[in-house]
Design a protein around this nucleic acid. Structure first.
Lengths: 153, 153
DNA sequence: CCACGATGGTTGAACGCTCAACCAAATGAC
DNA sequence: GTCATTTGGTTGAGCGTTCAACCATCGTGG
């Protein structure tokens, strides 16, 4: 028994293409701005943000990977670079000898603090300024639904 | 005069983080599926799609870059790989000696045709199946607004 | 007609991500 | 206690993207 492909109807096509174009353009723009103004890609910025929000500004590698929506491998490479930049330091975990703890350094925090206003301004300009309050609400619900759906599958 | 940063309020924060998580998870998933099932990343799939929709299945490099939302450089590298795979062929442009035309080969078309059902199924499962018809409509409007806004700035 | 700027496209180096392989430590079964 | 499995994390190779530099050709003003 062959399952027929459930092709996209014209509305879905249009939606999917618009979504692709918009999300690519948005992330490309923000990534370029961040690279230009702060010397780091958005993925690295997000790692620093997650660390900065944590008591002690530190997190187990695994937890940090989960928080940043990253694979272990990606995070490992990323933290290696962030460490070379002096923004993060690695420490051994006292309770689990396999564990590593990534710690945001003062220099990393300062770099983040310097980068944040410009980046937030970018997010506002490129995303929120273009949408009505109702659309922002819709986008939140849609995104939460999708994120939920994707982690369950 | 120093402009104060217009920080995100809690709702906007939540929206932005949900959006980031969802779009990253969605594209990561689709990219992985496409790589596994068709041996190409999503960006390359999209290039083949654009070519396939065109009369003669060919496009000037510039036009193709625009259609695929890609930089010239990215496209140049990508087409080089697609050419090595035998899915695309380059031809000289008869009317402009600077120009290059990317042509989808029969083999490229066949590969695309083989990959499409699985990919479309993925888009449906991971995106449309999770959303109500109203949400799909909202997502389309939001995306079109954003895409428009981003190309104007 | 020619000089100059704009356009079309490519290239190579640097960088980030993915994938699979790998090691070490923890956990659980017997 | 010992062995197998799972978990935590790293590594290196291969690939795709970016950025800046570059070359060739086109179009235009003078």
């Amino acid at each position: 028994m062959v399952a027929m492909t459930r092709w996209l109807d014209p509305d879905e096509q249009r939606t999917w293409r618009a979504y692709l174009a918009a999300s690519r353009a948005l992330m490309d723009t923000l990534d370029r701005e961040l690279q230009r103004d702060a010397g780091m890609p958005h993925a690295y910025y997000e790692i620093l943000v997650r660390l900065s929000e944590t008591p002690g500004r530190q997190l187990r590698m695994s937890d940090l990977a989960e928080a940043a929506g990253s694979s272990r491998s990606r995070l490992s490479h990323a933290v290696a670079r962030l460490e070379a930049a002096g923004w993060v330091r690695r420490e051994d975990c006292p309770t689990d000898r396999r564990g590593q703890i990534a710690v945001l350094t003062d220099e990393g925090f300062a770099t983040l603090a310097a980068a944040a206003p410009g980046h937030v301004e970018g997010v506002r300009r490129h995303l929120f300024d273009a949408l009505s309050p109702a659309q922002v609400d819709q986008l939140r619900r849609i995104s939460e639904t999708l994120a939920e759906h994707l982690t369950r599958s």
